[in-house]
């Protein structure tokens, strides 16, 4: 494992996961709303949306650790016309800013639903832009052949969608379990804290009167089950694509006579095997298990455990994979 680049490993993986989760939530919103109604979807999706915030903040903080002199960080906007790193920082800030704005409006129920939806769409587009720009920071370097390939953006986007989908699956089950355990009641004191009370007082009442009751437990359950089936299917499909990309990338790496031997050597390690095993285990086997369990209407606790395990396993695989990506950094020349 590349401990040296840990800040960048965490930053890139967590930021990509945030973008992926935001996009996945958007898909659930758009598709789920038609069948299950807005209130039912909001009830499950909103807490998951708020969970992205801390993850993203963690990632952004990690990225600052990478800098030798963070006090000069404002200078990083100066070279937008030439440096992909400048662009990465602008997109990173834009995505977090828009994401927080959207989460706040959604929480307070400010602005019309159409406005919020437009903001969410914009945030998702900027987020996908962030993943692209992030990949170009590496893929655009002609002096690092292991990075200077189509496989870099491909891998970054696969990380985004795979982790995003699985994170949403785990978060939905988290929300369900939270309700099951009656934790909301046990943490009721939080709502009595002054700042929280103040925030809640700013909240506008639901415009169409709450139809949550109409959706009911059955509706909510159906929605979560449909989402999890979708998550499991996506993770199995993305695993297939991921494996093809990995094979092609390794083939190109081995075939290029100008490739520094250190880049090839980085992937000839037990870590690479571990990454592949965890990937197949998490996205493939656990994904399949998740699908079966949901189809068989198994207990929520069981489904929650499998969903979380699939997410954690793939997260571990992606972190190792990103670490290998940094290990494979070797320049041409001297």
């Amino acid at each position: 494992m590349n401990v040296h680049e840990l800040p960048l490993i965490l930053f890139t993986v967590l930021a990509q996961m945030s973008v992926g989760a935001f996009v996945a939530l958007g898909v659930v919103q758009v598709v789920g709303r038609l069948r299950y109604g807005k209130a039912a979807v909001d009830e499950i999706a909103d807490p998951s949306l708020y969970a992205i915030g801390p993850v993203l903040v963690l990632g952004l903080m990690a990225s600052m650790l990478h800098l030798g002199n963070p006090f000069n960080a404002l200078n990083t906007f100066r070279h937008l016309d030439s440096s992909w790193l400048s662009r990465e920082i602008v997109f990173g800030i834009a995505f977090s800013g828009l994401g927080f704005l959207f989460a706040a409006l959604q929480f307070l129920r400010w602005g019309s639903p159409a406005l919020r939806q437009a903001l969410a769409a914009l945030t998702a587009v900027v987020g996908l832009g962030l993943v692209w720009v992030m990949s170009m920071v590496y893929a655009s370097l002609p002096t690092v052949p292991a990075w200077n390939t189509w496989a870099t953006p491909a891998q970054f986007f696969l990380t985004t969608f795979l982790l995003g989908a699985l994170a949403v699956g785990a978060a939905f089950m988290g929300v369900i379990m939270w309700r099951r355990q009656g934790l909301a009641r046990r943490f009721a004191w939080v709502e009595r804290l002054a700042p929280v009370r103040w925030l809640l007082s700013l909240r506008r009442p639901e415009e169409p009167p709450p139809e949550a009751a109409a959706a009911g437990d059955a509706g909510r359950r159906e929605l979560v089950e449909a989402s999890l089936r979708w998550v499991a299917t996506a993770s199995i499909l993305l695993l297939g694509v991921q494996l093809v990309v990995i094979v092609l990338q390794q083939r190109d790496l081995a075939a290029d006579p100008g490739m520094p031997s250190a880049s090839v050597a980085a992937y000839g390690t037990a870590w690479f095997v571990a990454r592949l095993v965890l990937l197949v285990l998490g996205a493939g086997l656990l994904g399949l298990t998740l699908y079966r369990m949901v189809a068989d209407h198994r207990s929520a606790l069981l489904v929650a455990t499998v969903a979380t395990a699939a997410f954690a396993t793939v997260l571990a695989s992606e972190i190792i994979g990103r670490s290998l990506f940094y290990d494979s950094m070797a320049r041409i020349g001297m």
Binding site: G68, N69, P70, N72, N75, V137, T143, V144, M334
Partner: peptide
């Protein structure tokens, strides 16, 4: 030095170290 953030991106890029 008054502008540099120490991101080390130039170090990755320069093929002469």
């Amino acid at each position: 030095p008054d502008k540099c953030v120490g991101c080390r991106y130039c170090e990755w890029a320069c093929p002469y170290s």
